[in-house]
């Protein structure tokens, strides 16, 4: 892993210089902020629009905040994760900067590992901020606090986003097109979503993490916790290992 620490510092400076970190923090702050607001105001909004015939909407509860948070941060966050990951390797290959760096004493493993580590931290920072804002804003809106398990739920959502980040990262390592890499990540997301329709399959797929996150946030004990987390860690590791193997053999030629 020669050059790993230097590359991590470079990746971090790049995330600051091209505003990737700032954009992620702003977008996830918004996701966090709107979650309690939507949970609180949706019944009122529906009522003011005339309501739904035959359906009496219950008063807003903390569980609605959790539902909104998972929907906003995890489901919408997928697209943020794909967008900020698609160019990580592909753009450097396309522009020739990968070749510029890799004729210096840096292993290809260090080159990739620095990228995925930094990206994971950027996403973690975004999710942490979203959770903090949602937690803080829930208190005045609901006169109550979310359960302590909410923080564990945020951690599980981070794992969920890392699965899609890893598959997009593999696409980025395989291809020289950022759009192609995004398509690869999106295809992995759609494929896994389709597989989750199969009976009992969800616990082995990223979707199972969202079920666990919901239960943890509501201070309940999820079944298959270790199994689902373990399998999803494998879903993260497999594309990363594949990316390292593929990139290690690739011929890098600067585009002139």
């Amino acid at each position: 892993m020669t050059g790993f620490a230097v590359m991590v510092r470079k990746e971090w400076r790049e995330a600051l210089a091209n505003n990737r970190l700032l954009v992620v923090l702003i977008v996830f702050t918004l996701f966090g902020l709107i979650s309690p607001v939507l949970a609180k105001e949706t019944p009122q909004l529906v009522k003011s629009l005339g309501g739904v015939p035959g359906i009496q909407l219950p008063p807003p509860q903390l569980s609605d905040v959790v539902t909104q948070f998972i929907k906003n941060v995890a489901s919408n966050g997928i697209f943020v994760a794909i967008l900020i990951t698609m160019g990580l390797v592909a753009r450097e290959k396309e522009r020739g900067t990968a070749a510029f760096v890799l004729v210096k004493p840096v292993t290809r493993l260090a080159f990739l590992a620095a990228k995925i580590l930094t990206q994971s931290v950027v996403l973690a920072a975004g999710i942490a901020l979203a959770a903090l804002v949602a937690y803080w804003y829930t208190i005045p809106l609901f006169n109550a606090s979310l359960a302590g398990g909410f923080w564990a739920a945020a951690l599980v959502i981070w794992l969920y986003l890392l699965v899609m980040t890893s598959w997009t990262f593999l696409g980025s390592a395989l291809l020289t097109s950022q759009i192609g890499a995004a398509g690869f990540g999106l295809a992995a997301f759609i494929g896994m979503s389709l597989l989750s329709i199969l009976p009992n399959a969800n616990r082995y797929l990223p979707g199972g993490l969202l079920d666990i996150a919901r239960l943890l946030a509501l201070a309940q004990t999820p079944q298959h916790l270790a199994l689902t987390i373990g399998v999803n860690c494998a879903w993260i590791a497999i594309p990363l290992i594949m990316a390292f193997l593929v990139f290690g053999r690739q011929e890098l030629v600067a585009r002139q």
Binding site: G3, V6, E14, G96
Partner: peptide, 30 residues
Amino acid sequence: RRRIGVLEQQPLFYGWMRGREALAFTGELF
């Protein structure tokens, strides 16, 4: 790679870096 230097026809750098920063980054890699 510790013992060689390479200059391409159209050198490709990280455009967001400053000149001093690029030299420091490369020096650190060595």
